[in-house]
Design a protein around this nucleic acid. Structure first.
Lengths: 200, 200, 200, 200
DNA sequence: CATGAATGAGTTTTCATTCAT
DNA sequence: CATGAATGAAAACTCATTCAT
């Protein structure tokens, strides 16, 4: 029975979690109220606070789980292929599939609490370092006057962030990331070329 | 006599304006309330609405005045030099001097009213086109498989936007833009190089 | 247990409702603020909006409940007697008992939202038609040059409206409608007489 | 020069007065703000309070002047004809020409201050008494069981008030009073008939 | 006398959080 | 554990009136 209770608890928590995720994804983390989430999830308003003591806890949980999932996918991708451009392409495809989520995250990141922001940025940083490693082993070079790999990685993620933020401005149907994917990959490849070519 | 009154009015308006600007810069356009601004400015809450009928009018005034000033500076820069990299460098210096403002703008742009957003994006677009023109005349090329100038411009402003958004993450003293200036300029120059070299 | 909660809720709602009703009756629907009602009812300002999402919802609830009650009474009266004058007399007595309410309603009707106004006027129209039917069957006549029944009904309700609006002007104690009841009934009867007499 | 000043003062006052009147007539006495009147009149907001210490003073002045004018017209009408029905018809025509004003007055009377209300009702009462006198001399009768003249007069003004209040409900073009004029006159005449016929 | 900037109490509504049931 | 009623501190905006110029 203790188990049953636990299961029930876990179930309720899951429902709230999934509902919140869907709503955040549709309407952003800021503009959805706890009351709305509870109503949509079919539980009492207070129940939400049993499982997530604070609104922020809920947001953090949703964001964190999504990023964990992303991390797993990325780890998988990296095992499959050591070709950086292919990897980057796959990553963009992944983001593009979850674009609604990542666009909200990119837009609203500055309004998260410092702790959450740091957490998210930390996760992001790990991915960046993984990309950096692959990049370096795929395109080995260390010429002084060439482009630094760190800059290339930063450009990749910077531009991805930019496209996500601007999704609304380019208010067309479909994925914005998908639309700019080739352009971004080309540029990255070009930049990488400026390093590689200088290797003896 | 009428002048004295006008001066007094202009003075009060200016106080509210400057107070609001300072607070917006520090804490963002969204999270500062009209009541706080009025209190900080030392006027009655209602007085604020004498000078700015709507909260949005105040925000818009602050944003607009700053962007107008920027436009003038940019026009000046363009007359001084036709060297794109120099121009871009100067532009980054300017933004870096007003970094608090542009960082808030970059972060909160998605939450502005559509009208304001369009206004700001329009202004931004003008600058981008000016940059594109200069770039094209400075580095003439039209090779099919090279990097497109449009992409280079987009990367320049995209990365600038990214650095501004991430200012808080790199929570060090001083200007974030200044710190990344050289890296950004180098990358841009490298990208431009990939176009130029292919010209016969 | 759930019942206790529900009872408590119903109790709070009732307190707000009754307090509002009393205050509306005394001071009109327009000039009483939600904050005043909450204070007088001894609940937090926000609590009022838990039970009545909008000020208008509260007003509408008060008005509607009173009019529904009226409708039931009128239906009852009509079953009891088919004598129009008796019926009209009873109706006036009913209005006179709830005079504070109907006086405010008459005075402030033009300032209600279109939806509420239509709702109230619609209810009123039903009663008028019921009266018209009874009148026609009680005093059957259709002479061309006699007074039209529609005019008689309109005069009845028109004068009632007038007395209610003028209640404050005749600022004496007690019911204004009661004071003019006999006079109004006499006139109506006289008017009806001008129709009836012309029947062959 | 003192004269010139006085003239100027009187002129300014007149402008404010006329502007206010027009606006009250169009939009009601309640919903027009002093700032709007001043703006529309082309004077400073404060100027309005030089001539009318209180918003209420302005409203009272406008209402009073209109009613004075009405009084003069009515006095004129009464000299022209001693036929009550003709007189009543002319009166309705007069009201119908100024319907916007009288409709606003009827609707908003309950929201005026007690002093103003009394003043207006007092004026109205004078007219009613004049009508009563004419009526009595035109249709001399004093039968006990007939309709009382006082009631007939009250019905006349009561119904007029009712039609004015309901002007918005019958939201058709043109004058509502004009539309109901004949019906009202007929009813009044019928009622008077019930007195007259009983005279030997 | 005319001006118009300044006032500040007042309005309805929202929402994360608490706690008795 | 689940409930959901209650809280109260926000928020932006209005407007008759005052008073120094």
């Amino acid at each position: 029975m203790a188990t049953k209770r636990k299961q029930q608890k876990a179930f309720t928590r899951r429902i709230i979690f999934e509902t919140a995720k869907e709503m955040f994804l549709q309407r952003g983390f800021i503009s959805v109220s706890t009351a709305e989430i509870a109503r949509e999830a079919g539980v009492a308003h207070g129940t939400l606070f049993v499982h997530f003591p604070t609104r922020e806890d809920l947001v953090l949980d949703v964001v964190d789980s999504e990023m964990e999932q992303a991390q797993r996918r990325i780890d998988g991708m990296m095992e499959e292929s050591a070709d950086f451009i292919k990897l980057a392409g796959k990553y963009l495809e992944f983001v593009s599939e979850h674009e609604a989520f990542y666009a909200q995250l990119a837009k609203e990141l500055p309004f998260f609490s410092p702790e959450m922001r740091d957490k998210i940025i930390f996760r992001q940083a790990i991915v960046q370092m993984q990309f950096l490693d692959i990049m370096k082993s795929d395109f080995p070079c260390d010429r002084k006057n060439g482009t630094r790999f760190e800059d290339v990685v930063r450009h990749f993620f910077g531009m991805l962030h930019y496209y996500l933020c601007m999704k609304d401005a380019y208010n067309q149907e479909g994925s914005t990331v998908a639309r700019f994917k080739d352009s971004l990959l080309n540029t990255i490849q070009t930049l990488l070329g400026t390093c590689k070519r200088d290797q003896p």
